[in-house]
Amino acid sequence: MSHGAAPAASRGPREWSHDQLAKIDVILAKYPTKQSAIMPVLWLAQDDFGWLDLDVMRLVARTLQIPPSHVHAVASFYTMFKKVPTGRYVIDVCQTLSCALVGAEAIIAHLERVLEPDAHGNSKDGLFTLHKVECLASCGSGPMMQVNEHFYEFLTPDSVDQIIHGLRSGNPLPTPRPEANEWQWAPRS
């Protein structure tokens, strides 16, 4: 359900690059209507422009020939479309039952201690945005968090520290542990 993010400040009118226009043509060819391309085009816009301000939404509306209000309605419905800027690393930590049964609360408390997020989840240095989210289909390998596109599973306070510390030191996102490619997990110490 929409949680009505406030309209964001303008960064000025936007235009697509040639590269983006070529990608949009590929997207449009997949659907019988232009409106159906709205989600993939919003993803493309978000990837390239960082987040979806009103000018980006207007550009998407113009491109797909649909009312800007409709683009706004769709963008607001889905939690993964960013209506406000976020830190470079978005940390979505799962708080749902299966993860909670194996210690998600402690991991969330640890993340909050380490990142000291403000009311919007942003860390002071602006590098991180922390969201507590619902089940990410990692329930057998919890506690878990998603950082940008990667899943990090079987979290402990130590493994969380390692990831955060690495990112703070300017390292790229670590490769998820090999467990991410397994589907059954024996007891671990």
Binding site: Q35, S36, F77, M80
Partner: peptide, 25 residues
């Protein structure tokens, strides 16, 4: 392949269809 954007309800088949059509899910 069509990528959703974070809404549990889009797993319900008619919501999935709405979402694919470019509506709210």
């Amino acid at each position: 392949v069509h990528l959703g954007a974070g809404a549990y309800i889009c797993g319900e088949e008619t919501a999935l269809i709405s979402s694919l059509e470019g509506e709210k899910g």
